[in-house]
Amino acid sequence: MTPESETDQQYNFAYLDEQTKRMIRRALLKAVAIPGYQVPFAGREMPMPYGWGTGGIQVTAAILRRDDTLKVIDQGADDTTNAVSIRKFFKRVAGIATTEKTREATIIQTRHRIPETPLEDGQIIVFQVPIPEPLRFLEPRETETRKMHALEEYGLMHVKLYEDIARHGHIATTYAYPVKVAGRYIMDPSPTPKFDNPKMNRTPALQLFGAGREKRIYAIPPYTEVVSLDFEDHPFEVQKWDRPCALCGATESFLDEVIMDDQGTRMFVCSDTDHCEKRRGEGHVGPAQEAAE
C-alpha cells in the first residue's frame, strides 16, 4: 500500500464527501436492481474535464475501500496518458494500491476496452461512458428516449441494423454496439469495440457504468445475460485479424495497428498491454520477436 504521507490529506478519502458517495451508492444499488436501466444521479463537478472519465471516476470513488487494488486502463493499456492521470488522482486522494495486472485488481476502471484476461468473481469493472443512451443517435430527445425504454419500444434500433445490412450487406456498427440486458433494457456498452461484447455476457464480475456529463449510472450484475442485437440470418460476430500479435503471437486478442515508419510499415499488437506482457512472460513469441532474434 502507498504510505499515508503520499495521500493528499486536504480531501476526503477518494475525493468525494461521504454524502455524495452515499448518493452515488444509492444510484448504484438501483442500477444493479434494474440491470441496464439508466439511473439519473446528481453527478458532481470533478477536477477533470467532462468527457474524460468523470462518471467512471465518481463511481470508482464511491465504491473504493482502503484495501482495494485499482487498475486503470484506456484503450486497453495502463500507460496511456489519461489512464496514468486517473491512476495518479486516486493514488493522491485515496492512497490505495494500484496494479497493472488484471488478476490482482479488485476494481478496474476502463475506457474503451474490457481486459482479455477473463474477469473473476468479486472483481468490479467500471466503465467510463460518454453517451449512455443507445437510442440517442436515432432520437435526440431525452423525453422521447426515456419513453421508448419505459415502453420497451425498440423497433427503431433494429431499423438501424436493417439499414446497415441493406446498404453494406452486413451490420456496420463496430463499437458501442447495442446490447439487450437481462431480456429487458437495451444498453450502450460504452464505446468498447464489439469485440468485447461477448465478455459482458454472464461474467462473474460486477459491471458498473458511469456517465458524468450526462449524469447517468447503469449496471450489469454478475452472471447476467447480455445479448448483442442482431438478426437470425445475420448473427452478431466480432472482428477478426488475419495475423497474430507481433509481440506475443496471440490470435484471440484485439489488435492495435501501429504505423512503424513513413513507408507505411505496420505492426499489429495486443491493445491489452497487460495481457501481452503476461503472455510474453510465459514464453509466447510473436512474428516481430522471432524476426528480431
Binding site: 419500444e153 423497433g155 431499423v159 436493417y162 439499414e163 441493406a166
Partner: peptide, 27 residues
C-alpha cells in the same frame, strides 16, 4: 414516414417492432 430510412426499412419497421428478427423475411 422516416425520411432518412430506406423504403424497405420504413415498411419493415412495424414488423421489427412486433418482434420480427429475420432480415431475409422482413425484406
Amino acid at each position: 414516414l422516416r425520411m432518412a430510412v430506406s423504403a424497405g426499412g420504413n415498411v419493415g419497421e412495424r414488423l421489427m417492432a412486433v418482434g420480427a428478427r429475420h432480415y431475409g423475411d422482413i425484406r
